[in-house]
Write a protein that binds this DNA or RNA. Structure first.
Lengths: 195, 195
DNA sequence: GTCGAAGCGATGCAAGTGCATCGGAACGTC
DNA sequence: GACGTTCCGATGCACTTGCATCGCTTCGAC
């Protein structure tokens, strides 16, 4: 056996570079050369890890999708004792990527979403990601409020979170306003149960 | 005076071509040559109308933004006699671009939104568009239901509509499900007033 | 040691990019 | 009808793109 390399970790390293570049100048700014330079490997290494550019993008999307989902669940297990209402709020805030330090992830995510509208392989990954998130949200909602249709409420919340992310990114809303909107929506969901 | 050309209409013609191409393969598929070919003019003509590619994209975004806004207001004046609740529902459905025949516009819109996250000049146009829509929505909501904070309700509705559009585009939701979510949200808005 | 396969990095290549240039066609003015 | 301005469309150019190629290094098996 000749020289061995941890392919998996190198793929992650490259995916990280892809995300950085996509954050800075959109998916159009992601070229094999720039990715290689950013990841501090040679272009040959990139080509060895991914047979084609599309394969690289698909992997990168999966990578960041996992990271976001992981943060949501981490946030959930981190504060398990509190009320389901609080947990739901935290999870939603997390998935909306409203915090300044996650703005980069939001930009990358948006870039991929737009590309997915014309690229089935990317859309597939996004769908499975959203499906997972929706399941989690529906369960949380079912616990937090005995809404007649938790699935619908989850779909609403997920779409709202995504829309807010977008609006913050393009500067139509400030993060604070987005949080306010989110809070208002959750409160209404909550009050409805109470009544 | 030599040969005269209606620049304004030609610009619209080119913008139309930009939108068609962006619908088919995203903004990355929009090249000067392809735009010229699709608009059935020469590349020289495109360059005469727009000094740079960015200027062309900015114009195209303004073009489609106007079209969408126009459809919303058209839908409003078209059915003025009905209740404000119905009008609000129509306007929201319209802006969500859920109808199959507007799916292309939705893809184009999403492509521009993603690009705007890294391009200030595009973001500027989007902001003014959203600001206009939000004003209309806030007014409608104020008429339809005496919500304590119509502005916040409008922001919520707009973000929800955008999120639903996105989710339909990537195939996470069917148009029917999106309509269902929208309807549920509006109903809650309405009931809240009634209570 | 020697060998050979696995991986590396530089380079090549054809295609495509945005933009500049330029000769000539088209048309109102005199 | 000649003229000059405005516009046109083809071509050129420098550059970048994704991908293929090809010596060379590296390292474990024997």
């Amino acid at each position: 056996m000749p020289k061995q390399v941890d392919h998996q970790s190198r793929r992650r390293q490259i995916a990280e570079a892809v995300c950085q570049l996509a954050d800075e100048s959109g998916l159009e700014g992601v070229t094999l050369r720039d990715v290689a330079a950013r990841a501090e490997v040679s272009m040959g290494a990139v080509q060895r890890c991914f047979a084609t550019k599309e394969e690289m993008l698909v992997f990168a999307l999966g990578h960041i999708g996992e990271r976001i989902a992981a943060r949501v669940t981490a946030r959930l297990v981190e504060s398990p004792a509190q009320s389901a209402r609080t947990a739901l709020g935290h999870a939603t805030t997390e998935v909306s990527l409203l915090q300044e330090e996650h703005r980069a992830e939001a930009r990358v995510w948006l870039a991929f979403v737009a590309q997915a509208a014309v690229s089935p392989s990317l859309a597939e990954i996004l769908r499975s990601n959203y499906a997972g998130l929706q399941t989690v949200f529906a369960r949380l909602i079912a616990e937090a409020a005995d809404t007649p249709d938790p699935d619908r409420a989850a779909r609403t919340l997920l779409a709202l979170a995504d829309g807010l992310t977008t609006h913050v990114l393009i500067g139509h809303l400030s993060p604070a306003m987005a949080l306010d909107v989110l809070d208002g929506h959750l409160n209404r969901l909550w009050d409805e149960r109470a009544s």
